[in-house]
């Protein structure tokens, strides 16, 4: 089966409107294969999506790439640990809140959770910090989120982890398979929504509520309009003096206006909210 230009454009438009995601021309074959496996004629796709909401999420699973690993850009987590220690000392009347945007299969939010546990251990000698931290993670791929909730990892995704980290924060299930321990998992809550959706961000995250936001290698999949929307929502979600971590090669200088200040750290450049 092939998809005509006109129909492909239409599908792109639907996905863009619902998720903010821009799919590329190289996703066309993948999409054609998927539709033929479901016996769906491309022309009737719009109708089918209206009828079967689940179909949209299946398509998203097909076109998003979900390959990541624990402690990607490791030095950023060293900086985070320092920031969290400082927050632990100062913030006692509420939970410290961190949002992992576009969390995919969960490696990033669990890396954040492990960092939180370490920061807590460094100050108080215990990993038990559920009453102090809250990590919220979102993604638009249902399949990725299911894997994240399962929290079982192996191979590529754990290549950065030392013996010590695996023993402390994971439980071995099979020779090459490790599950994140409960005390770490309890810190993270997963939601299915897009960072570009104002409505969902207000609903699940709220205003002025996050101390740190991680949005790494997410905006690279967006066009300018979606990037702007995403950054607006992140800015609203952050507290004053909150921190934004992007991937080292990403920049928001073209869309940030005067809302973020650059901070220099051992983990590269991070952004601090200006109020």
């Amino acid at each position: 089966m092939t998809i005509s230009d006109r129909v492909f454009d239409k599908i792109r438009k639907i996905i863009y409107e619902k998720t903010g995601l821009v799919i590329g021309i190289r996703d066309r074959d993948k999409l054609a294969r998927f539709l033929s496996s479901r016996d769906i004629r491309p022309k009737s796709l719009e109708e089918e999506i209206e009828y079967d909401r689940k179909l949209l999420y299946d398509i998203i699973d097909v076109v998003t790439v979900n390959e990541t690993f624990f402690f990607r850009h490791e030095s950023q987590f060293e900086v985070l640990e320092g920031i969290l220690k400082d927050l632990l000392k100062r913030v006692t009347e509420r939970k410290i809140r961190i949002w992992s945007v576009g969390c995919s299969t969960g490696e990033e939010p669990y890396s954040i959770a492990i960092t939180a546990c370490r920061a807590h251990f460094g100050l108080y000698g215990s990993y038990d910090c559920e009453s102090r931290f809250e990590i919220i993670a979102n993604d638009i791929s249902r399949e990725a989120l299911n894997k994240a909730k399962e929290a079982v990892y192996g191979g590529y995704s754990i290549r950065n982890l030392s013996r010590e980290v695996l023993e402390t924060f994971f439980q071995q299930e099979a020779p090459e398979s490790y599950r994140v321990k409960d005390f770490v998992r309890r810190l993270v809550t997963f939601y299915l929504f897009s960072v570009t959706s104002d409505y969902d961000v207000k609903r699940y995250i709220g205003f002025n509520s996050c101390d740190c936001v991680f949005c790494r290698n997410v905006m690279i999949y967006f066009d300018d309009n979606s990037r702007r929307k995403a950054l607006d929502n992140i800015y609203d979600a952050l507290r004053s003096d909150g921190f934004l971590f992007l991937a080292p090669t990403e920049t928001i200088r073209d869309i940030s206006g005067d809302r973020f200040a650059i901070a220099i750290t051992m983990g590269g450049i991070i952004y601090v909210v200006k109020r």
Binding site: I83, I262, A263, T265, G268, I269
Partner: peptide, 29 residues
């Protein structure tokens, strides 16, 4: 842990010389 450039007196002294200072910091990086 970190230095916010806009709070640094040295940076404030130089900033006005550099047209797109955020961009230049990335380039230096």
């Amino acid at each position: 842990l970190f230095v916010v450039l806009n709070d640094d007196p040295g940076w404030l002294r130089l900033k006005d010389y550099i047209t797109d200072s955020d961009y230049e910091i990335h380039k230096i990086f």
